[in-house]
């Protein structure tokens, strides 16, 4: 290597600032991809000079991406390190970069959602709201500055952390470490995709397949419960003991499908989409079609 290309702190700060707008062009096809490419542009400009390389890099970073917007920062950091190595001639291919992104985004969203949306936000929000409800202007001020300082500091330091960790991964070029990372990333990526298809694609059928009258003693007899708190206690105890709430056992189509394996319909839908995409059906057509199906199926009470 004659001259090592390196991202300066100024480049990384610029990426960090732009990552604030990660969700700006959030879309149903590739979600945060536009914002991701927007954030990577300062790095791409620095690392690649030829028009072909730049076009390829932009294309690479317009691929699907979606995670919690704040924990995207460590992923951006690692990706910056990988791009730096690639620009310096290391054999980092597109699949490796996409694999790292996909492999990290699921688990990190699993950290970001509970930490920010369900811990920091309710605590700060409740504090600010209770102040504001008494007409105190300090409430919104605390919320605004508290939230943004926490967020900005978190995003900068995790991005730097990811960048340094990513550089270490790629330092060892002689060993097969990089190849291992590539393969490991695609394994992790596919594994997480399998999990996300099950958890995040939601297809629910509502038709009732059967409604069976239960025998006496299999359900809670509400009219025979004692009144007041005693009755509530007894009802809860009976439910824990396995008694049904109503006197009919209702089985929906969804219950039947779930007993095969939960998420089967989501899997089928995903495979259908893969097939349609391979048949060169435009993603926009698929997306609009799914919305129409959602409305129509809801109208005829299928979903």
């Amino acid at each position: 290597m004659v001259q090592e290309l390196k991202l300066s702190k100024k480049n990384r700060l610029s990426v960090w600032w732009r990552s604030t707008f990660l969700q700006g062009s959030w879309n149903y096809e590739r979600m945060q991809n536009g914002g991701w490419a927007y954030a990577m542009i300062p790095a791409i400009k620095k690392l690649y000079t030829s028009k072909e390389d730049r076009a390829a890099a932009l294309k690479r970073h317009l691929e699907f991406f979606n995670t919690h917007p704040y924990v995207a920062s460590p992923i951006i950091g690692v990706t910056l390190a990988l791009e730096e190595e690639r620009a310096n001639g290391a054999p980092v291919d597109d699949v490796a970069i996409q694999g790292v992104k996909i492999g990290m985004m699921g688990p990190l969203a699993g950290i970001g959602d509970p930490v920010f949306w369900f811990t920091v936000k309710p605590i700060l929000g409740a504090l600010a709201a209770s102040l504001a409800m008494t007409g105190n202007i300090i409430g919104p001020i605390i919320y605004f500055f508290g939230w943004n300082i926490i967020r900005m500091v978190f995003m900068w330091y995790t991005q730097e952390f990811g960048y340094k960790a990513g550089s270490k991964i790629t330092d060892d070029l002689s060993g097969g470490l990089l190849q291992d990372i590539t393969k490991g990333a695609s394994i992790l990526g596919m594994f997480i995709l399998g999990a996300l298809v099950n958890r995040w694609v939601s297809v629910k059928f509502t038709p009732i397949v059967s409604s069976v009258k239960l025998d006496k003693g299999a359900y809670i007899e509400w009219d025979k419960l004692p009144t007041g708190a005693q009755g509530i206690k007894e009802a809860l105890e009976q439910q824990v003991a396995g008694l049904s709430l109503g006197d009919h056992k209702i089985t929906t189509l969804q219950n039947n499908l779930d007993s095969l394996i939960p998420g089967l319909a989501a899997l089928a839908l995903t495979i259908l989409c893969m097939w349609l995409l391979k048949k060169k059906v435009s993603p926009i057509v698929i997306i609009l079609g799914l919305f129409v199906i959602g409305v129509v199926f809801h109208l005829i009470h299928l979903m």
Binding site: L193, V197, S202, L269, C273, L290, V296
Partner: peptide, 17 residues
């Protein structure tokens, strides 16, 4: 209905990856 559609549309992105 649109919310239901929104739940399914996610599959398109995963299918691409």
């Amino acid at each position: 209905g649109l919310a239901i559609g929104g739940g399914m549309v996610v599959a398109v992105g995963y299918a691409m990856v």
